[in-house]
Amino acid sequence: MTMIFGVPAAAFYGQLLLGLINGAFYALLSLGLAVIFGLLKIINFSHGAQYMLGAFAAYLLLSVLGINYWAALFLAPLIVGLLGVLIERYLLRRIAHIDHIYGLLLTFGLALVIQGTFTNWFGVSGSRYPVPELLQGGINLGFMFLPIYRAWIVVVALVVCFGVWFMIEKTKLGGYLRAGTENSALMQAFGVNVPLLVTLTYGFGVGLAALGGVLAAPVYSVSPDMGSNLLIVVFAVVVIGGMGSIVGAILTGLLMGIVEGLTKVYYPEASNVVIFLVMIIVLLVRPAGLFGKGA
């Protein structure tokens, strides 16, 4: 049997693929954070709670209203995104002109309130969300058994990541957005409604978190604390990639998924700290992050 660093080759490829799957998932979540920070300079600490809300929205849509997964894939991000619009319009906008740290504190407080409320309502044991019929089962790749649903997560995450990057970096709308955050007075003089643009951007970023939640619902148990651990990891990913860099967030997400996946094979005890170790090293060597511009 071929061995790679003391692990059978087949097992090694399997772990690599799993790392890539988790990485795609990190990429999707850190993308939302990077969009919100890059364009609005808001450090969105309620991203984890909004991810959890996405999963719960899908769960409640199915269990209360009987609305299936495919519809929830669009509806849940829309609902949670609208909630994001309200948060931006009535809370974040009031503190937009002062230090960013206040935005961080506000969103962190919101996250605790949301998580606490859901814990009170639903308990922490979580609920099951079934894998949609079309995506059940798996494929035997020879070196591992790949559940179809996991492959689906990668496809959706990569398509969405590419789409968002394209929209922000290559389209006219993205251009307005970047210009509006650079110099909002000038853009408003040109007749662009910058406050509306800002509100919609925040809502969009929140919607991305919720989409992550819907994708996660069938593989993890839907529970109020599902976002709290993930949030910190995803923040580390954004910091490593360079705060606000969209390409950085996507590529670092994939990379960190792989790093974490391999740690789970070689030294599982360290799997929840390895990303932070990488973060510390990157901050020491390149304070602006791997893909950040300037310090």
Partner: peptide
């Protein structure tokens, strides 16, 4: 409090 057990289940 680990979220993802896929790597361990594969092992």
């Amino acid at each position: 409090s680990t979220d993802d057990f896929s790597s361990y289940m594969l092992q």
